[in-house]
Amino acid sequence: MTFDVWLSDPVNWVYLAIGAAVLLCGVRVVTSQNVVHAALFLVGALAGSAALMLLLSAEFVAWTVVLVYIGAVIVLFLFGIMITRAPVVRDVGLDNKKARPVAAVVALATFAVLTYTSLLAFGNTEVARVGDPTPTETLAEGLLGRFVLPFEVVGFILLAALIGGITLARRDLSPAEEEERGAV
C-alpha cells in the first residue's frame, strides 16, 4: 500500500488528526508551567488514545481507558495536587529546560523500540476493521487464558507497589503521638 492510497481513505485523515492532537497534548504535558494544566493535557492525550482505540474497533478498551485513566487516575492526580498545593499561577520550575534534550532522546528511543516491535509482531496483517467491533469475550479469553500469567504478575506487582507506597508514606505513630492527635 502506497502512501497516497492510504491517504485516500477518510478514516486515515481522522487517524492523523487525532494522532496529531495526542502528540500536541503529550508535548504540552511536559512543557506546561501550570501543574493542573499539565494534568488536563494528560486527559487530552488519554482521550485521544481512547479515540484511536475506537478507530481500531476496540470499543471495550476505549471506554476502559476513559473509565480507568481519565475517570480515576487523573482525578487522583488532581486530588493529590489540590491537597498539597494548587497554585493558579504558573510555576516556572515545572518545565525543566535543561533536561529537554535528554527527554527528547529517551522519548524518541521509546518510540523507535515500540514501532520496531509492533512492525515485527504484526507487519502488514490486518488487525481489525472499522465498524466490526472486537467482541469483549475474545479480550477476556486472551486476558484470562493465554496471558493469565503476565496478568497475574502485573496484579501482584501493583499490590506490592501499593503496600510499598503505604509503608513509605506512613510512619506508625507512638502511643503518645496518637494520644496527641486524638482518636478518630
Binding site: E59, F60, W63, V66, L67, I70, G71, A72, V75, T136
Partner: peptide
C-alpha cells in the same frame, strides 16, 4: 458496552 459507557460518563 452500554454499562461501561455509563460508568465512564459518571466518572467524568
Amino acid at each position: 458496552i452500554g454499562l461501561l459507557f455509563v460508568l465512564a460518563m459518571s466518572s467524568m
